[in-house]
Amino acid sequence: MKARFYNTGLPIALLVILGLGWEASVRLFEIPPYVLPGPLQILEVMWQRMDLLAAHGLVTLTEIGLGFWVALVVGFTLAVLIHSSQILEWAFLPLIISSQTIPVFAIAPLLILWFGYGIGSKVVMTAIIVFFTIVINTVEGLKAADPDTLALLKILEATPGQVFFKVRIPQSLPFVFSGIKIGVAVSVIGAVIGEWVGAREGLGYLMIHANAQLQVELVFASIAWLSILGTGLYGVVVVLERLLVPWRQRAASLISES
């Protein structure tokens, strides 16, 4: 309980202190708002332009959400295939890993060309960037099954399907969730890059647009919204993990109590 208080209390306190320092410096050195607005001003813009930010935020959130689903479905399926066949693992895994050396920035213009200015190209971008961590973590998780447990299942005369669903899948879930958590953080990047390169809506588009008009407060307000989106999504994943992988939390809480 005490640890929990410090866990949430201290970062908030630090954030407030940093904000106060920022506000004080902006006023003290009379920095013009088109260079660096103070946090109070940013909050004011966030409040005043709530409708605009929410509308664009919703677009970005949709892109992230859809991209994530695509990555999860394709990534998980591919991981299962890779796990089921040594030949597929040899064929696919090196290519998947080396594909990570291609910066997403580099292919963003191509994706816009292929999938258009609309939501499609951003969904693909997000999916590409998230996909990797899902595949790698799921493959790792499927391999993590304890050999003695597998021997037990063999003695119990379990079919390969039973071994897969009763042991391998549950065993892999904590790994899959680790992948999803990393994926959430990078998914926001994927969507925003897509919007920067070419879009008509979304928080990334709003930032570029506001920046060009020297509305720096609005740029910061968009960044704040993106951060809130990312944190919120992370929170959703944590809640889902508690529901789907309850044994992990229980184990962790037992350790911290002792």
Partner: peptide, 13 residues
């Protein structure tokens, strides 16, 4: 036959 070892091999989930 059924088999039991020193390790309980219970599934944590």
């Amino acid at each position: 036959m059924a088999y039991m070892q020193q390790k309980d091999l219970l599934l944590p989930w």
